[in-house]
Design a binder for these strands. Structure first.
Length: 827
RNA sequence: GCGAAAGUGGCGGAAUUGGCAGACGCGCUGGACUUAGGAUCCAGUGGGAGCUUCCCUUAGGGGUUCGAGUCCCCUCUUUCGCACCA
C-alpha cells in the first residue's frame, strides 16, 4: 500500500496558506531570517534544477522556522530579457502575453511542490510597478556620476542590425545569419562599478561565502599595483599614458605597443587617410575574433607607426608600434615594451628587429643581449638605469616610482581588471533607459513625474531584427522636457542584470508605490541571511548586486554593507553525467514524478542524492528509494498508532528496560543530535536524511510493541515520534500529517526543533579496537572511561592479540579513550 | 600556461579533529509471504585466498606516524575559473 500522498499534500498546502505561516511582517517578537533563492526566468517549464534549488531554500526556511525565527522567503520572476523575447517570436505572440502565461504556469507548479514562499511579495521585473524603480535607480546613478555614456567597440551584425555578445560571434560571423561581424564604435550606457572596485575586494562582511566564489571575484576584479607613466610624444603636446607593474624596467623601454583601438591611433588614422598599409592593418586587427585575438598562441603582429615618444627618465627615443597583443580594455590601453625583461615584448622585438636594452643584470650569471634566448624576468641588479645602477631591482621599483612621481611624469597607483558595466541592450523586452536625446540639449533625464517610461505594447517582435522600439513613432518621438523641441527617446533597454541587482531589497517592501522600498522595512529584513543560487553567477550577478547594494547604502536607502551575508552555491542535477537539457533529450519532468510519487518524494530524493553544493545524479531508482522510505515511516507510525500514542504519555527514563530498548533510546538521541548538526551547522542535508533513515531502521526492528513493558513502550513511542520532525524540512507534507496523527494540535514548526538528552548518549560499554602496528587484531568491551593501564593489560590478554604477538616484543601501547588500544610491536 | 577543487565498491555517496574505510540509499544474490506488486519482510553483498583466520584495497608512487581516504612530496586524470592583465 502506498501512503495517500496526493491527498496529504493538497491538505497541508491549504492549511499552511490559510494559517499564513509563510507571510511574516516586521511586527512579531521573533528574530527575522531572510532566505532568498535566486529568482528564475519564467520559462514556463519547471525542471529538476529548479526543484533541487528551491528544495534547498525551503529546507533552510523550515529549519529556521523550527528554530524560532520569523522567516521570509519571497519569490519572483526575472522576466525581462532575450529568452522571453525569443520565446514570444517562436510562439508568434507577444512577450508580455507569453511571459505572464509562463509565470502563471510556473507559479502553480511551485505551489504543487509545497514551497513556503510568501506570495504576497511576488514581483516580476517586467511589470511597471517594479521596473519604474529600476528607472529611478538609473537616474540616481546618473545624478551621482555613476551612469554615463561613452563610445565603445561592439560586435555589430549589419544584416541583423544588432550588437552581438562575444559568444554569439562564430569565426567572425553572426551566429544567426552568418553575415560577417564588424567592429563598430557605438554610444553605450555604462555603470561605474569600478568606483567600488576597492570596496568590492573587502569580503569581511560575508560570514560564510564559499572560498571558491571569493577567489573568483578577487580574480575578476584583478587588482594590480604599479605606476602610471606618461611618455611625451616627440612631436606635439600629447603623451602616451601607460600603466606598469615593473617601474624598475622603465629605463629599458625601447618601444611602445598600442592597440589599433587606442584614441591616438584612431587620430593618426584620420590624419593619414592615404596610409593604406596602416588602415588595412588596423582594420584587420580590430575585426579579428575577440576570443581568438586574446588567445595565447595567436601570433604577435604589429606595424611601426612612424612616430616616436620620449622616455621621460632616460630621454631615449622610443618607437611607437601598433600591435594585436595589447588590450584596449585593460589599464590605460597602452604598454611600455621592455623586450629584455618581458617575454611577449621580447618575441615581438625579435620578430621586428627592434632594439633591446638590458636594465636588470642576473647576479649569478652575466647576461648579454646577443646570447639571450628569452626575456630575463627574475630579480637582479639594475644596470643602464642612470642613478639607479647597482640597486637591487626590488628596491628599484620603489625608488624609480618615487622619482617618476616627484618629477611629475606619473604616479603610483592601482588598476583593476574589472571594467565598467555596459548596460545598454538594443532589445525590446527590457527596462527602457529613462532618457530623452535632444538635438539641442543632449542627454536629458525623463522627469520623475513622467516615470515610468512604459514599454509600449504595440510592437511586432520578430518582424525585424533591429530594435522594435524604433518602429513605434508615437513612443519614440517626444518633446524635450528642457527646451520643448522635438526629441527622441533612448531606445536602448537595460541589461537584465540591472533588474536582479536590487530585487532582494524590493522583496522587503514589494508593493510600495511611493518609493523603491521603505528603509524601515528594508533595514528590518536586510541583509539576506542565506542566499542560494548557481555558481555560474559568481562574478557577474553577485558582483553587480553587491555593487548596487553599496550604491543604495550610500544613497541612504539601506544600511547593510553587503546584501548577502551567507551564500550557498548549489550543484546541478545531472543525468548520465551530463547537464539535463532539451538538446540532449535527457530531461526529466518533475510534474510526472509529483503525480506518481508526490512532491515530498521528489524533494527528498533531490536532497538525499548529494550535498547541496555538489552536483547530483538523477536516478529513477533513487526516487523509488525515497518513496519507499516515506512509505516505511508512514507504515511504522500508522500501524502502531495506538501503542505510540499511549507510550508518549509514559516516562522513558526508567532503567528497567532491555538492552535492545536501551539501544533504541540511544539511537533516538544520537540520531537527533547528528540530524541537528548536519541540518543546521553543516547544511549537509543528505547525511541528515541518512540519519533519519538509519533511525527508522532501528525503530522498525522492534517487532512487537504490544509486548513491551511500560517503560519500554515509552522508549519506542519517543523513538517513532522524532521521525516527523526529522522529515519536516525535507518532506514537509507527510511530516505534518504524521505529526497530526500522533495527536498534536500544533504545526510542527510551532513545536520547535527535535531535542536530545546528553544523558542518553552515554553508553555503559563501548567496543575498543585493538590494533597491532595499525592492523585490527581484536576487540574488547569496556567502559568508555575505563582505566588506561587496565585497558592495556586487557588488550594484551585478548586471544587473537596474544597469538599475533608471539615472537614479537611490545614496544609501546597507546590508548585512545573510548575508541582503541594501539600496540606498537617489533621483532 | 596560471589558479582552484576533486579522484573512495557495480552506482549515488559517508567517514566532521589523523583513530574499526565503505554509514545511508540504489542495484545485485538467496530466502519468506502472497489478494502477484514499481509491494512487504528476513539474510547477504569491496576484492582475493588454504574462509572461526589471513592478505589486498580510498587514481598511481614515495614519505611522516603506534596509526593516513584525511598530513607532506612527486606523477597521472577529471572538472571549473582565468587566460598575452603590461
Amino acid at each position: 500500500m502506498e501512503y495517500p500522498f496526493s491527498k496529504i499534500e493538497n491538505k497541508w498546502q491549504k492549511i499552511w496558506n490559510e494559517r499564513r505561516i509563510f507571510n511574516p511582517d516586521e511586527s512579531g517578537p521573533k528574530p527575522k531570517y531572510y532566505v532568498l533563492s535566486m529568482f528564475p526566468y519564467p520559462s514556463g517549464i519547471l525542471h529538476c534544477g529548479h526543484v533541487s534549488n528551491y528544495s534547498i531554500g525551503d529546507a533552510v526556511a523550515r529549519l529556521k522556522m523550527m528554530e524560532g525565527f520569523s522567516v521570509m522567503q519571497p519569490m519572483g520572476w526575472d522576466a525581462f530579457g532575450m529568452p522571453a523575447e525569443n520565446f514570444a517570436i517562436q510562439h508568434n505572440s507577444h512577450p508580455r502575453i507569453t511571459t505572464e502565461e509562463n509565470i502563471a504556469v510556473m507559479h502553480e507548479q511551485f505551489d504543487s511542490l509545497g514551497f513556503g514562499f510568501d506570495w504576497d511579495r511576488e514581483i516580476s521585473t517586467c511589470r511597471p510597478d517594479y521596473y519604474v524603480w529600476g528607472q529611478h535607480l538609473f537616474k540616481k546613478l546618473y545624478e551621482k556620476g555613476l551612469a554615463y555614456r561613452k563610445k565603445s567597440w561592439q560586435n555589430w551584425c549589419d544584416s541583423c542590425q544588432t550588437v552581438l555578445a562575444n559568444e554569439q560571434v562564430e569565426n567572425g560571423r553572426c551566429w544567426r545569419c552568418h553575415a560577417e561581424v564588424e567592429q563598430k564604435e557605438m554610444e553605450q550606457w555604462f555603470f561605474r562599478i569600478t568606483k567600488y572596485a576597492e570596496e568590492l575586494l573587502d569580503f569581511s562582511k560575508m560570514i560564510d561565502w564559499p572560498e571558491r566564489v571569493v577567489t573568483m571575484q578577487k580574480n575578476w576584479i584583478g587588482k594590480s599595483e604599479g605606476t602610471l607613466v606618461r611618455f611625451p610624444l616627440e612631436e606635439g603636446e600629447k603623451s602616451i599614458e601607460i600603466f606598469t607593474t615593473r617601474p624598475d624596467t622603465v629605463y629599458g623601454v625601447t618601444f611602445m605597443a598600442l592597440p589599433p583601438e587606442h584614441p591616438l591611433v584612431q587620430k593618426w588614422l584620420a590624419e593619414e587617410p592615404d596610409n593604406a598599409e596602416l588602415h588595412e592593418f588596423c582594420h584587420k586587427v580590430i575585426n579579428e575574433d575577440k576570443i581568438l585575438r586574446s588567445a595565447e598562441d595567436t601570433t604577435k603582429e604589429g606595424i611601426f607607426s612612424g612616430r616616436y615618444c620620449l622616455n621621460p627618465l632616460s630621454g631615449h627615443r622610443v618607437q611607437i608600434w601598433i600591435t594585436n597583443y595589447v588590450l584596449m580594455d585593460y589599464g590605460t590601453g597602452a604598454v611600455m615594451a621592455v623586450p629584455a625583461h618581458d617575454q611577449r615584448d621580447f618575441e615581438f622585438a625579435k620578430k621586428y628587429d627592434i632594439p633591446m636594452l638590458l636594465v636588470i643584470q642576473n647576479p649569478e650569471q652575466n647576461l648579454s643581449l646577443e646570447t639571450m634566448q628569452e626575456a630575463y624576468i627574475e630579480p637582479g641588479i639594475n644596470v643602464n638605469s642612470g642613478p639607479f645602477d647597482g640597486m637591487p631591482n626590488e628596491e628599484g621599483k620603489e625608488a624609480i616610482s618615487r622619482l617618476i612621481e616627484e618629477k611629475g611624469f606619473g604616479k603610483t597607483t592601482s588598476t583593476y581588471r574589472l571594467r565598467d558595466w555596459g548596460i545598454s541592450r538594443q532589445r525590446y523586452w527590457g527596462n527602457p533607459i529613462p532618457v530623452i536625446n535632444c538635438p539641442k540639449c543632449g542627454v536629458v533625464m525623463v522627469p520623475d513625474e513622467d516615470l515610468p517610461v512604459l514599454l509600449p505594447d504595440n510592437v511586432q517582435v520578430g518582424k525585424t531584427t533591429a530594435n522594435p522600439l524604433l518602429s513605434v513613432p508615437e513612443w519614440l518621438e517626444v518633446k524635450c522636457p528642457q527646451c520643448g523641441e522635438d526629441a527622441r527617446r533612448e531606445t536602448d533597454t537595460m541589461d537584465t542584470f540591472v533588474d536582479s541587482s536590487w530585487y532582494y531589497a524590493r522583496f522587503t517592501d514589494p508593493k510600495n508605490a511611493k518609493m523603491p522600498f521603505d528603509p524601515e522595512k528594508t533595514n528590518y529584513w536586510m541583509p539576506v541571511d542565506q542566499y542560494i543560487g548557481g555558481i555560474e553567477h559568481a562574478c557577474m550577478h553577485l558582483l553587480y548586486a553587491r555593487f548596487i547594494g553599496k550604491f543604495m547604502r550610500d544613497l541612504g536607502w539601506l544600511e547593510a554593507d553587503e546584501p548577502f551575508a551567507r551564500l550557498l552555491t548549489q550543484g546541478m542535477v545531472l543525468k548520465d553525467g551530463a547537464k539535463m537539457s532539451k538538446s540532449k533529450g535527457n530531461m526529466v519532468d518533475p510534474g510526472y514524478i509529483i503525480d506518481r510519487f508526490g512532491a515530498d518524494t521528489l524533494r527528498l530524493f533531490l536532497l538525499f542524492a548529494s550535498p547541496p553544493d555538489k552536483d547530483s545524479e538523477w536516478s529513477d531508482d533513487g526516487v523509488m528509494g525515497a518513496f519507499r522510505f516515506l512509505n516505511r515511516v508512514w507504515r511504522l507510525i500508522e500501524s502502531n498508532l495506538e501503542p505510540i500514542k499511549r507510550g508518549l504519555k509514559l516516562s522513558p527514563d526508567s532503567s528497567e528496560i532491555s538492552a535492545s530498548m536501551r539501544d533504541l533510546r540511544f539511537s533516538t538521541h544520537s540520531a537527533v543530535k547528528k540530524w541537528l548538526e548536519d541540518s543546521l551547522e553543516r547544511m549537509q542535508y543528505n547525511t541528515a536524511i541518512a540519519a533519519a533513515m538509519e533511525h527508522l531502521n532501528n525503530c522498525v526492528a522492534v517487532k512487537n510493541p504490544e509486548a513491551l513493558s511500560e517503560a519500554e513502550l515509552a522508549v519506542f513511542a519517543q523513538a517513532c515520534a522524532v521521525l516527523p520532525k526529522m522529515l519536516y524540512p525535507y518532506a514537509p507534507h507527510v511530516a505534518e500529517e504524521l505529526w497530526q496523527m500522533l495527536g498534536h494540535e500544533t504545526l510542527i514548526h510551532e513545536d520547535g526543533l527535535p531535542e536530545y538528552d546528553e544523558r542518553h548518549l552515554v553508553r555503559e560499554l563501548v567496543t575498543y579496537v585493538v590494533q597491532i602496528n595499525g592492523k585490527v587484531r581484536g576487540k574488547l568491551e569496556a567502559a568508555p572511561d575505563a582505566d588506561q593501564e587496565e585497558l592495556k593489560t586487557q588488550a594484551l590478554e585478548v586471544d587473537n592479540v596474544k597469538r599475533s604477538l608471539e615472537g614479537w616484543t611490545v614496544k609501546k601501547v597507546i590508548v585512545i579513550p573510548g575508541k582503541m588500544i594501539s600496540i606498537a610491536a617489533g621483532k
